[in-house]
């Protein structure tokens, strides 16, 4: 249990640094999605009750929806800049 949480924490730190340092926008969105998954896993492992699972599921659904909206907008902006 302890090593699992520690491993997810180390992955989260590395991915957070790469979100901050990467210059490419699409790659930054990919690392952000991975960071959201890691935070949802940490929430589900931190709370010792079934309500924590509900909170982690709601956060997972919300962050996935938001990342999909950002990806769709990135595609639309790239098409607009390529055309004009």
């Amino acid at each position: 249990m302890d090593t699992l949480v520690l491993l997810i924490g180390v992955i989260s730190f590395v991915v957070g640094l790469r979100v901050f340092l990467t210059r490419n926008r699409v790659q930054r969105l990919l690392y952000l999605c991975c960071l959201n998954f890691a935070i949802a896993a940490l929430i589900a492992l931190y709370i010792k009750s079934p309500m924590g699972g509900v909170a982690a599921a709601v956060y997972f659904i919300g962050s996935t929806l938001s990342s999909n909206a950002i990806a769709h907008t990135i595609g639309k902006v790239q098409r607009l800049e390529g055309r004009g």
Partner: peptide, 23 residues
């Protein structure tokens, strides 16, 4: 300074806020 980069970073910030509220 670009809009989409700022919105991606805002998402990053809000994820941290939700984690702190859960803790």
């Amino acid at each position: 300074t670009d809009y989409l980069d700022k919105i991606i970073m805002l998402e990053f910030l809000t994820g941290g806020l939700i984690g702190l509220i859960v803790s």
